[in-house]
């Protein structure tokens, strides 16, 4: 168990980062910190995927010097998944940031709990 953990330190780190990001997204009340948490969480998943797709001693599957053997290259699918994931997470972050701007313009605060309290007072 302990040796496995050490030899797979990349996966272990990505899990810890995932936890940190998840906790921040869930528990922070500041919207910007939440978005930072979201990005840490997503990046941790990409680290996990990259770590899983990498095979020591091989290179990215782009044929430049005519080598076509499967043995020479790493698995390209996780890299493809990471790219797709990055696109998704960029667009989601942009949407969250735009919501944050809207809320800040209205309430001059980034604290989501304070905004909720104020909304209750307004009694809309």
């Amino acid at each position: 168990m302990g040796t496995n953990l050490f030899s797979n330190y990349g996966e272990a780190v990505s899990m810890i980062l995932f936890g940190i990001g998840f906790g921040n997204l869930l528990l922070q009340s500041n919207l910007i910190k939440k978005i930072i948490g979201l990005n840490i969480m997503d990046t941790a998943i990409y680290l996990f995927l990259a770590e899983k797709g990498y095979i020591a001693g091989r290179v990215a599957p782009i044929v430049t010097d005519g080598v076509q053997s499967v043995e020479a290259y790493i698995n390209p699918i996780p890299s493809g998944l990471v790219l797709t994931g990055i696109v998704v997470s960029v667009s989601v972050s942009a949407l969250m940031l735009s919501i944050t701007i809207r809320l800040y313009q209205r309430y001059q605060t980034l604290n989501l709990d304070e905004i909720s309290i104020r909304l209750k007072k307004e009694g809309l």
Binding site: I45, L81, M96, I99, T100, L103, R106, S116, L119, L124
Partner: peptide
């Protein structure tokens, strides 16, 4: 209005937590 923007922010946060877990699950399954 203020309410809907706040609701959208909360909705996004919960949804993103959910999709983070889902993505992690799919990656582990892969």
């Amino acid at each position: 209005n203020g309410r809907t923007i706040e609701a959208a922010a909360r909705y996004m946060i919960m949804s993103l937590l959910g999709s983070g877990l889902l993505l992690m699950g799919i990656c582990m399954l892969y």
